[in-house]
Nucleic acid binder design. Structure first.
Lengths: 140, 140
DNA sequence: TAATATCATTAGTGTAATACTAAAATATGG
DNA sequence: CCATATTTTAGTATTACACTAATGATATTA
């Protein structure tokens, strides 16, 4: 019915990305830590996490939260779209900081398949303007 | 505080665009007509219109609705972004219909200034894939 | 003009995402 | 075992969206 397979809201996107970046060491995040990262109170963060769990994107036990396989894929997809769009904007002449902000407005909406095609069109840059690798193969 | 100057929701965008396209002859739209175009019931459409009025984008009297100057500008801006993004997607290899659907997901979010820069980067096409003029100067 | 049909509007619900406070339940560490 | 920290529940609020049902207003037309 809906647009994306992994249809996430803005805040859910924030949460996915934070989890993706903070659990690379295989340690889960604590609720309060997530709340701090999102800049909201713990009950609000808990709410977001419950929605993610409901969608099969995260799992939690006693305040310890991890991404599922599916959540990990969703997060990487979002990052790919983000960095692709960011690169497009920068190549077009949008200042780096502005590009990042703008990319964050759409990175959870634009389809990964579209982003991959755009990526090719703009010359398959390996890194986004911030220097982060774009493809999920060469992760930091 | 927010992202866009003319920050409109998805449904408000739909309403703006419908009004823009259906009031070219300077005749206002009726509520029920708007409701039909949006595929919602009149009370729902009325609600959307009230939000637009509140934002200074539309005016209505006795069920007759028109865009304000500001609303007209907002609608054109959205169309410019839509057609630009659509063109980008098509040039990248996304099928036309798909491109249109995807563009509709972001045309009310991406900034006009960004779109103008992207437009230049992709070679300043005069028309979108559907053949509609992109620049607001040469309107149909 | 009066009756009917059409259209607009109000009122009342309901869902989803977002966010808060306050309080209660659970850990955790001494 | 107690104090602190953390999680969780409960309750409230806002915005966008959408509905039904009822009411109000305005036509059209018989």
């Amino acid at each position: 019915m809906e647009h994306k397979t992994n249809d996430v809201s803005r805040r859910e996107r924030d949460c996915l990305v934070v989890l993706e970046e903070e659990t690379k060491d295989n340690f889960p995040m604590r609720l309060h830590q997530i709340a701090d990262s999102l800049g909201v109170k713990p009950p609000t963060a808990l709410n977001v996490i419950k929605r993610l769990e409901h969608k099969g994107l995260a799992r939690s036990r006693g305040g310890m939260v991890v991404l599922t396989e599916s959540g990990d894929r969703a997060a990487r997809s979002i990052l790919l779209v983000h960095r692709t769009f960011e690169s497009l904007l920068c190549q077009s002449g949008v200042p780096e900081n502005s590009a990042c902000v703008e990319a964050a407005e759409v990175d959870f909406i634009i389809q990964e398949s579209d982003a991959r095609l755009i990526l090719k069109k703009i010359g398959n840059p390996k890194y986004c303007p911030h220097g982060k690798p774009i493809s999920e193969r060469d992760r930091e």
